[in-house]
Computed example of a mutant assay.
Amino acid sequence: MTSHQSTQTMKPATAAKKLGVYLQATPAEFQEGVVSRTELSALQTDPPEWLLELRRSGPHPRPVVAARLGVSIAGLARGGVTEALTTEQIEALKAENPAWLRRERATQAEVRKETVRIKEKKAERDDRSDGERS
């Protein structure tokens, strides 16, 4: 009996998410097909020009926009940014530095500080419990 190994595929939306690009900006053949794990790996290791251009200029999906602005995705929504933005639009927002962006960046900085504090507290607690067991 021969076992047939099926090729794992994913929907274009999943592949676009893994590639960090906005699906609607990808070529039609990418949007309409399915992407195998092998094809995804090839796109990641040797990206075609369209993928390089999308990563460089956009439009970018919200997670990328949020990361480039230094805010959370929820912070983007609170700031009224619900659509994909190009690199140029992101840079313009950074230059303008509206009040909502300053506020969301401050919030994000506090969240990061709190995450570090919790991590350090957990490590300290783990060290103490390791010492008690010895």
Rank of each mutant, 00 (worst) to 15 (best):
Q5H: 14
S6E: 10
T7G: 09
T9I: 01
T9Y: 05
T9D: 03
M10T: 05
P12C: 10
P12G: 12
A13G: 06
A16M: 00
K17M: 07
L19F: 11
L19W: 13
Q24G: 15
A25D: 03
P27M: 02
E29I: 11
E29P: 11
Q31L: 01
G33V: 07
V34W: 09
S36L: 01
S36A: 01
T38W: 15
T38I: 13
E39Y: 01
T45D: 07
D46L: 12
P47N: 06
P47I: 03
W50I: 04
L52W: 07
L54K: 00
R56P: 03
R56E: 06
S57V: 12
S57L: 11
G58L: 04
P61V: 01
A67S: 13
R68T: 00
L69W: 10
L69P: 07
L76E: 11
G80N: 04
G80H: 04
G80F: 05
G80E: 03
E83L: 06
E83T: 02
A84P: 05
T86S: 03
T86I: 00
T86D: 00
Q89Y: 14
Q89N: 08
Q89M: 09
Q89C: 09
E91Q: 13
A92R: 05
L93M: 15
P98A: 04
A99W: 12
R102S: 15
R103F: 08
E104C: 05
R105I: 01
R105V: 00
T107I: 12
A109Q: 15
E110W: 10
E110R: 03
R112W: 02
K113T: 03
T115F: 00
T115M: 12
R117N: 10
R117C: 09
I118A: 00
K119C: 13
K122R: 14
A123K: 08
E124Q: 15
E124L: 13
D130R: 10
D130S: 11
G131E: 15
R133S: 14
S134M: 09
S134R: 09
